[in-house]
Design a protein around this nucleic acid. Structure first.
Lengths: 389, 389
DNA sequence: GTTTTTAGTGCGCTCTCCGGACGAAAGGTG
DNA sequence: CACCTTTCGTCCGGAGAGCGCACTAAAAAC
């Protein structure tokens, strides 16, 4: 079949094949739908689909077509991506947790596990523990190592594009470590790494609240503050791969020293630990993020005030970024991303500090995937890389 | 070579044709060179080139090939983009000047003219005057209207993508005006419009100091402050086309009221008129921008101080943007763009306020095209749109 | 039962690309 | 000078890809 001949014609064919499968990843469709969606002729689509069926990549649904919603005519035969053999692994390393998932190649998560780990200070230990969790999850899912194609992984720190190492200074226990290579050695799988906000953004754009949008800022507010920037439908990583460092924007000339060495960083004023620290003295109970979000929903005045102030501070930095990038949507993620007070504060600052036309063009909303955005993005990354060959 | 977008054979052919011409825009090449450069076979390249010669788009150079630098063998016949018939028009509308240019379709400027005009307050009058200048320049260049394919134009204000109208509030005399349509009516030519910083960025990336770079921030400091943002080699315009509004980033809570209605905008502290206003009292002579740049070069302490302070202020905003976007280069343009003190100040602020890795990755330099960047970009825009059909 | 409408497929055509063969035009070598 | 080598450009046949058209299939509408 696959002659070694390199050729543009062949490439055209594969491009069209990819167009079909990517359209099909949205759900089952008929060949006619595919023809309309790709702009190709029905003949061509038929032959492409035949090829894909032959290769085991798609299947005709025996599912008798629903009585064709609108009109008359012969009912279509739906085809769908066949649940491919094997699967992929997703790993989400946060500041205080590790989450692993095993998914099939359509992105459907089969097994998921999460553990509290002191990630920041122990790089190698964390990776050992993570590898063990992955192996356990694979056993639960009943997958052999040989059936797993790749792993996607996020770390809560910027990564240098070339070396894939953790950028200096943010995570003390990870300095000069290349998490991808390390986990790859432990698992014997190709491991693709990106930072947490980028993968959260990827997840929301591909499978979440920003599906199909071109220009989106995904802002993660959790142990730190970071942004995943999607422009023209693609993740923007920057020259050295460390774009999106919203957490270290200067919001005050003087302020506490940040772990990055500067002072006045956004992260020193807005982060889950910091906000808990501010709130705790006023409450009898022990606060954690979940409890704070509950209190926010219940209308607790103190919590609302602190969270909306935090939103205003983040929004101040976001307003400048909106002026520069004129995005369609600002999407909130991270453990605090679902707080409505935070969103209100951000909205207020954008309206106040951004140009009116810019502010009018941007929607502010919480992500649909919540704290699972990163793991979904990690799975998506693995699938994308496997599909790309 | 270029990934064929999904579609027909015809589209593949045009993609390959484009690959050839784009490779050829780097200079004369032989067919064999083109084959190596595109990855296509010599046969295919030959047929493509024959087609292009037939269409008058490229020509064989009679120029007998140099004795083939290295080896023996039949000397190649070089082909080159033929200077195409007709030309394009570029129009640069600044706050206080109008500049027009007539260029041939390779971007070589044949005639250029500049006039001081009070642009801000008189939209329609400016367009009348501009049209007259264009007509005069065409006469000088000896071009008939019918030989001119299109005009590119920049205006010193954000433009709404859909309506192509000047965004509200910035240029008082232009409110609700669609400069493209207006000039189009006056000239009887298709007119493509973008804002000044975007076209300056386009010019520097295509023909200036940032040639070939992927992620570039072009910052224009003149009557206002604006940015043209190039990411992944493409101009980023944003959802509604108004990205790049650096001038209205908030750099101080309280400050003079800006023409945009806010206060504390960067533009109220850093702009050519503002800086002249600050400097003038200390000097006996009447200052203008040229004189200030001279004094800067001569090492005048006052000017250096004011310009480097201005640079630090701009750099403060740029540092945040660099953190977010991690660009390869910050390029300075506008009438003050060539000031070395300004560049020094910007560099200092980026080093101070941006993440170390981000700061290390970015070069700060003055644009190569100076105050002609906009007009070059306008010409480039016209050529690009004509080439795109 | 007939018509209409939509879905899927087979056939022939054209377009595009490629590999190999061939002539062309230089330099190098005896 | 004849001959070989090397590179360039072209010609030719063949294969891959997509499309239009015609045809069958299967349902709803009349």
């Amino acid at each position: 079949m696959t002659a070694p001949s390199t050729g543009s014609l062949e490439r055209l064919r594969t491009a069209n094949r990819r167009a079909v499968t990517s359209l099909l990843s949205g759900g089952p469709m008929s060949r006619a739908d595919l023809a309309r969606g790709t702009g190709l002729s029905r003949t061509t689509v038929s032959s492409l689909v035949a090829e894909l069926i032959d290769g085991g990549l798609v299947t005709e649904t025996t599912d008798k077509a629903r009585p064709h919603k609108g009109g008359s005519g012969r009912p279509p035969v739906l085809v769908t991506l066949s649940a491919p053999s094997g699967g992929v692994v997703g790993v989400d390393v946060g500041h205080r947790h590790v989450r692993v998932a095993v998914a099939n190649r359509t992105g459907h998560v089969l097994v998921e596990d999460c553990a509290a780990v002191d990630v920041d200070t122990h790089g190698a230990d964390t990776l050992d523990r993570t590898a063990a969790m992955v192996r356990a999850a694979l056993r639960t899912a009943g997958l052999e190592r040989s059936e797993v194609h790749a792993a996607g992984m996020c770390v809560p720190a910027p990564l240098d594009r070339r070396s894939a190492r953790v950028s200096t200074g943010i995570l003390p226990g990870w300095r000069e470590l290349s998490p991808g290579e390390e986990l790859q050695r432990r698992l014997g799988l190709p491991v693709y790494v990106d930072n947490d906000a980028n993968l959260g953004a990827l997840a929301e754009v591909e499978r979440g609240a920003a599906r199909g949008l071109a220009d989106v800022l995904y802002v993660k507010v959790a142990s730190g503050v970071g942004a995943g920037i999607v422009l023209g439908g693609r993740l923007h990583r920057g020259t050295s791969g460390i774009a999106g460092e919203l957490g270290h924007v200067q919001v005050g000339e003087d302020g506490p020293i940040c772990r990055c060495g500067n002072r006045g960083c956004l992260e020193t004023l807005v982060s889950a630990p910091r906000l808990l620290h501010v709130l705790q003295p006023a409450y009898d109970e022990e606060l954690d993020v979940e409890r704070v979000l509950e209190l926010d929903d219940d209308g607790d005045a103190g919590v609302r005030r602190v969270l909306s102030d935090a939103g205003r501070t983040v929004g101040r930095a976001l307003a400048d970024l909106c002026n520069a990038l004129n995005p369609e949507m600002v999407l909130l993620g991270g453990s605090l991303g679902t707080s409505s007070s935070l969103a209100v504060g951000i909205r207020a600052s954008i309206d106040r500090y951004a140009q009116p036309d810019t502010a009018a063009a941007v929607r502010v909303a919480a992500g649909r995937l919540g704290d699972r955005a990163e793991i979904v993005g990690a799975v998506s990354l693995a699938i994308a890389r496997v599909a790309a060959g």
